[in-house]
Amino acid sequence: EPLWIRPDAPSRCTWQLGRPASESPHHHTAPAKSPKILPDILKKIGDTPMVRINKIGKKFGLKCELLAKCEFFNAGGSVKDRISLRMIEDAERDGTLKPGDTIIEPTSGNTGIGLALAAAVRGYRCIIVMPEKMSSEKVDVLRALGAEIVRTPTNARFDSPESHVGVAWRLKNEIPNSHILDQYRNASNPLAHYDTTADEILQQCDGKLDMLVASVGTGGTITGIARKLKEKCPGCRIIGVDPEGSILAEPEELNQTEQTTYEVEGIGYDFIPTVLDRTVVDKWFKSNDEEAFTFARMLIAQEGLLCGGSAGSTVAVAVKAAQELQEGQRCVVILPDSVRNYMTKFLSDRWMLQKGFLKEEDLTEKKPWWWHLRVQELGLSAPLTVLPTITCGHTIEILREKGFDQAPVVDEAGVILGMVTLGNMLSSLLAGKVQPSDQVGKVIYKQFKQIRLTDTLGRLSHILEMDHFALVVHEQIQYHSTGKSSQRQMVFGVVTAIDLLNFVAAQERDQK
């Protein structure tokens, strides 16, 4: 057995438009009618409502009807409940999964919650491996369901041993009777949507819809739904939504950006999952974080739909894509998950301010006199920076000697690579993860907040409520011999709460 199987392995699926269902090699399930009293909570997966979006479509000038398939009504709160249950049931049916076995899954959280929910009911041990950027709410729900959680670096490539995929496979090879159901490759993922989600949409719309818009992560949702719609409703256009920084969209030119990270969760990847059939997507749109969270908040405030950030991405694209539809036509959007997962993220004004998705003037509360002053007023001194090749031991000596707790790590040209902190280095040394002679590049981390000289002290204040420091950066445009230009970030300084307090105190003292 291989040590790991690539999540982007070539698909062996034989589905073709027009091929009889009787030739399918898979076990198919028909939607079942729910009894009045459910035998367990797993029976509350599927049969989610279709809700008309009344205000947002009109606000953006849509002539067509805009409908939302509300997947956050599933038992675990997301569309991923469907595939989690289906993968477990299919693994039980073919004898792969037996009582007492362990389920391991690399996930952005929602599939993990679905699997942990099913594992709690069915009696399996469950280990979820997820990147650090995923919300604390997801972690809390997983723990409450009895799952064990392993976190991995957000910026690790999918084929790196440190990625959530790599760590999951390492655990599988170490733990007896453990299984990775593997949402990236498992046919049960798109089949769950082909058999149930798509049929529900067709039934709820009486077979009449002209466009379907869905955000894409593993691709199982859009693949399964689109294949069924292509068979039953061939005139329906399928629109895929991919965040900026991901590479799922086609044509490839759409993916060209210097951005590699994004805040919206559960969609987009740096590889093409095996289950994603991009041939059934008629057109791709890219979405960005700001519009995703703005539209998610709009869905909550104006439509009462308590959905997550990827739902915002989907609707932001839908109001663009559906401009081509006329009166009497219908566009369906998939709202994948609930706001429950993001209470401390985009639902929080403070978080939105820190990330730059909300401006101070958007909030009406009274601010102190210094709130709208610029960061450049602080008069920061030149920063202490270190090269990635310097040793951890030497870096600790320098920081202690100069009285700093942290320093930016830059390359020879001064471009920011990340940050090192005294606390992080000492804990890594004590844990045996690094040696004093190791290069400081081994303990770089990139989960820090950046701020510009033109940003306000109010925004800085919000950042420092949650973080010990902020890195002050400025952009530099560099022209190359080819005539092309590129933008790079340079370090201007490091600012802490002490710097802000000293500035405010000094100004008030001078005024007296």
Rank of each mutant, 00 (worst) to 15 (best):
D277G: 04
P251I: 04
T496W: 02
A321T: 11
A311F: 07
V409N: 01
M490F: 15
V410F: 12
R488G: 15
L399Q: 03
E401A: 12
K359H: 13
D337F: 01
I238A: 02
G418T: 08
V281K: 02
D499P: 00
L358F: 11
M352Q: 01
D455G: 06
K367F: 15
L501D: 01
A431I: 10
G379K: 12
K367L: 14
T456N: 14
I398W: 07
T344D: 04
I238K: 04
H474Q: 13
A296N: 05
I300Y: 05
Q489L: 13
Q435K: 15
D438K: 11
Q406P: 03
S348A: 10
G483Y: 13
V241G: 13
K402R: 15
E475R: 10
S246K: 03
K484M: 13
V410C: 15
Q376A: 04
T389M: 15
S427A: 11
S486L: 14
F271V: 01
A431H: 04
L325T: 05
V339C: 07
V280R: 11
E265G: 01
K402G: 13
D277K: 02
T482Q: 06
E258G: 15
E377R: 06
V440K: 05
V434R: 10
S485D: 12
R350P: 04
W370D: 01
T395H: 09
F492L: 14
G493C: 14
D362T: 11
V491M: 14
L380V: 15
A321V: 15
A321R: 09
E324K: 15
E324R: 04
G309M: 00
V375Q: 06
D362G: 12
L335P: 00
V281T: 07
E475Y: 09
R400A: 09
A322W: 00
L399W: 06
A413H: 03
S486E: 11
Q354Y: 06
S287G: 11
Q439R: 09
E252A: 15
P243G: 03
K286P: 02
V333T: 14
L248P: 00
A497R: 13
E397A: 15
S427H: 08
R400C: 14
E250L: 13
Q511P: 05
L248D: 00
Y342Q: 01
C392A: 15
L426C: 15
Y445S: 09
A470K: 06
V319C: 13
K345G: 03
G356S: 07
G328W: 06
F448C: 15
S485N: 09
I300A: 02
A506P: 10
A318L: 02
T454K: 11
I396Y: 11
S313E: 07
G414N: 04
G308A: 04
I451Q: 06
T279M: 13
R374P: 10
S461T: 11
E465Y: 09
R297L: 06
A311P: 06
V409F: 10
A316K: 13
L378E: 06
E360K: 14
M419L: 15
Q476V: 09
E412V: 12
E397L: 12
V317T: 09
D282F: 15
G304D: 00
L353E: 13
T385E: 08
F404N: 02
V472G: 12
L358H: 07
F448Y: 15
E475C: 14
H474M: 09
Q487I: 13
E253F: 07
T274N: 03
A249K: 02
L305Q: 00
A413Y: 13
E252G: 09
P383W: 07
F295A: 03
V504F: 14
E252L: 12
E365V: 14
R452M: 13
L399T: 06
I451G: 08
V494Q: 04
K286L: 01
S287D: 03
S461M: 15
S310I: 00
T261P: 15
T385Q: 07
V495P: 09
S381R: 12
D282H: 04
L373V: 15
H462R: 06
T395K: 10
S427F: 13
V315P: 06
V410H: 14
R350C: 06
G403F: 08
L378R: 02
K402E: 13
K446W: 15
E361C: 12
F469Q: 15
S246M: 02
L353C: 10
E360R: 12
I463E: 09
F492I: 14
W370R: 03
G268I: 02
F271L: 04
I272Y: 07
D242R: 02
M466Q: 13
G414Y: 08
S287L: 09
K286Y: 02
K359I: 14
D455A: 15
F469S: 13
V434H: 10
D438C: 09
G312Y: 01
E397N: 15
V264K: 00
W284V: 01
L325F: 13
A382N: 11
V281L: 15
Q447T: 12
G493I: 14
E290L: 12
I247S: 08
I300T: 03
V443S: 13
A431V: 14
Q450N: 12
G432M: 05
L464C: 10
A301Q: 07
S313H: 03
T456K: 15
T482E: 04
S461L: 12
P383N: 05
Q447L: 14
R297H: 01
E360M: 13
R278C: 00
V473M: 15
R488W: 14
E291K: 14
V494G: 06
H480F: 13
K402W: 03
C307P: 06
L384S: 14
R452W: 13
R452V: 11
R278S: 07
S313T: 15
V472A: 15
H372Y: 13
R330I: 09
L380C: 10
N255R: 02
A382Y: 05
L335W: 00
Q439P: 09
E252R: 15
E324I: 15
Q323P: 05
K359V: 10
A292E: 08
G309A: 04
M343S: 00
K433I: 06
V339G: 08
Q435H: 15
H372Q: 13
V440S: 15
T391N: 15
Q435A: 14
V491W: 13
K286E: 07
K446Q: 12
T385N: 12
T385I: 15
S348M: 09
K446D: 08
E327T: 14
L299N: 03
K512H: 11
F271Y: 04
G308K: 00
V333W: 01
T344I: 02
L254E: 03
Q478I: 12
R340W: 02
M490C: 14
K366Y: 12
A316H: 14
T454R: 06
N341K: 05
T294K: 04
Q447K: 14
S313A: 13
G308Y: 00
E360Y: 15
Y342H: 05
V415A: 15
E361Y: 11
T260G: 11
G432L: 11
V420T: 14
P383S: 15
G458P: 08
G379P: 12
I451F: 15
G312R: 05
I239H: 01
P388C: 04
L325P: 00
L347Q: 02
T274M: 01
I300P: 00
L500T: 13
R452D: 10
F503H: 12
K512N: 13
F285N: 08
S348W: 05
L353V: 15
V420C: 11
N502F: 12
G379Q: 12
V440C: 15
Q354A: 06
I300R: 00
E377K: 12
V264G: 00
V386I: 15
A292W: 02
V504K: 13
F492P: 14
T421G: 03
V420E: 13
D467R: 07
N502Q: 14
F448S: 13
S481W: 04
G240D: 03
G312C: 01
V264S: 00
T454G: 08
E263T: 07
V319F: 14
V375W: 07
M419P: 14
A318V: 02
D282M: 03
V315L: 11
G418D: 07
P336L: 03
M425V: 15
L464F: 11
A505M: 09
F293V: 01
F357Y: 09
I238N: 02
N424T: 04
E401V: 15
L380D: 10
G458R: 08
S486H: 08
R509G: 14
K366M: 13
A316V: 07
V472C: 09
K433N: 14
N502W: 09
E508Y: 10
G493D: 15
Q259I: 13
I272S: 07
Q478M: 12
D282C: 14
V386M: 13
K359C: 13
Q323E: 11
L358K: 11
T456H: 14
